[in-house]
Design a protein around this nucleic acid. Structure first.
Lengths: 282, 282
DNA sequence: GAAGCCCATACCCTGGAGGTATCGATCGCG
DNA sequence: CGCGATCGATACCTCCAGGGTATGGGCTTC
């Protein structure tokens, strides 16, 4: 199977419409129909159930959609990381670290300082993205190593090292009724806080429907908290840099927040290995 | 990048010889030279340093080799799993479980029985391979779920659930001096056992050089142990099924052996999920 | 039943992948 | 030092696969 075929199939599977998929791919509809037909014939599997009015995925089609996405990510990662490896000696960054915008700032700063002091250190670019998007950056090669927060971020499929374990806290507007309390229990959180959770964009930059403000970075989020429009559950350390107008209340009965370093398991890069070694204090 | 280009590059990178790589790929040498040249031009990166007498990987080339291997595995997995998904309703196996030949037999049997009793159970094929080859089967889609043994097998990159934790033991010929002892400490194992470790084939079916007999399944290995030609460190449960002529001595000072279930993290298959649920006793 | 939507088929054309022949550089050897 | 052998690169040709346009044919909708 060629990546072109996988790209074509993913486009059709996502659009469930040959015409729109072809437009998205920048080709005409007939070649797309043929390409999918050939793919089905060679796999010996029906991937799409189509009538002249609708297109639907078969079971095999759903399997291929999931597998094709990860395969295409792996190919994209190969291309990006190779490009970066070639540029690295001539001024490009040797490593890209991705973190949640606004999170774990102190930790990251300390980490970068420590690493920069190493004799064989290479340049490190820091990339900041919304929650849940770091994993994607790691998978498709835009980043080499990520700061993740279990249990919120999905750690599956990466090598990890734990950096810190912290208790969670609720961040609300200063003066909110909750701030009068010593702590909140997770089970009563929703009722007591009385505010909608913020909504972050997904990997295509779109927002799901629902209550709660749309946010795309932490500065913006902290302002919205200070204005009493939303709240946030975060590690206690985040409360320190929240600033004016925001108060933190310890959250009980919730799992601790583990900050960890994650990287793709097949990475055998010398630079990455030495970065991880420094980060884990070995 | 197309998978064809990645296959070509991997062939050259592994052979470090355009002629042999072309032969392996079943094409002539000139198109291969051109394809690599084009790849380098499009990536803007020199991948191979070649003189008329030698071919060597550049830094970028090494990165691409590692990344390309995992990308090609992902593509192969997409193809295999799609094929299997299409065959499943008509008699093919819905799931493929891969385990080390001869290991954890009882556990696996119990697991399969429990799962088969589920209302929505699908057929499960069991695939047995040599140590260290299960991960590859999982990565390239020949299997959906594996039984692995930490810390011997490499768990990186998979979702896992722990099944059992056991103490390790040394399996030697019955009557071996060691069998007179209550236990052995890991640090003194090599000196006391006085035998070479067995050698298993790697992913291409080749054996590394060194002392110790070449083995490719556990029956064969147990016979060799009974003949006093080699020894094995295994979880204590393995000793039970070792049979005549083989004795087990507890091994101290070594990490416990964790038997775990592993599967590719992106798998969203309903069947796999229910298998894992049964296996973890939830 | 007329119109519109949408996927499949028919047919043509071009780019690029693959083949053969050969060059040019390098190394070993007498 | 010159000769042959080795090996990657280049030149040139062929052919097919991937892409385009035109159109058919099944459904749905008023």
């Amino acid at each position: 199977m060629e990546t072109r075929e996988l790209r074509y199939f993913v486009a059709v599977a996502e659009e469930l419409h040959f015409g729109r998929a072809a437009e998205r791919l920048g080709i005409a509809q007939p070649p797309l129909s043929r390409a999918i037909g050939q793919l089905e014939r060679r796999l010996g599997a029906r991937l799409l159930e189509r009538t002249s009015r609708s297109v639907a995925l078969t079971g095999a089609g759903e399997v291929l959609l999931a597998e094709a996405r990860t395969a295409l990510d792996a190919v994209a990662a190969a291309e990006r990381r190779t490009r970066r490896a070639a540029e690295a000696p001539t001024g490009g960054a040797g490593l890209v670290l991705v973190s949640k915008a606004g999170a774990a700032n102190e930790l990251v700063a300390k980490l970068l300082d420590q690493y920069a002091a190493e004799p064989d250190a290479v340049g490190v670019d820091v990339m900041l993205v919304g929650p849940g998007l770091q994993e994607q950056a790691l998978r498709d090669g835009r980043a080499d190593v990520a700061i993740l927060h279990a249990p919120w971020d999905d750690v599956a499929g990466f090598d990890t090292e734990v950096l810190t374990v912290e208790d969670p806290a609720v961040l609300v507007q200063a003066g909110h009724p909750l701030t009068g309390r010593d702590a909140v229990h997770a089970s009563e959180l929703e009722a007591l806080v009385g505010l909608p959770a913020p909504r972050w964009p997904d990997r295509e930059g779109r927002y799901a429907d629902g209550p709660g403000p749309e946010v795309h970075d932490v500065t913006q989020l902290l302002q919205l908290i200070a204005l009493g429009r939303t709240y946030l559950v975060a590690p206690v350390s985040a409360a320190a840099q929240a600033g004016e107008g925001v108060a933190a209340v310890p959250l009980l009965g919730a799992p601790p927040v583990t900050t960890l370093l994650a990287w793709p398991p097949q990475s055998r890069s010398r630079d990455l290995a030495s970065f991880v070694r420094v980060a884990t204090g070995a």
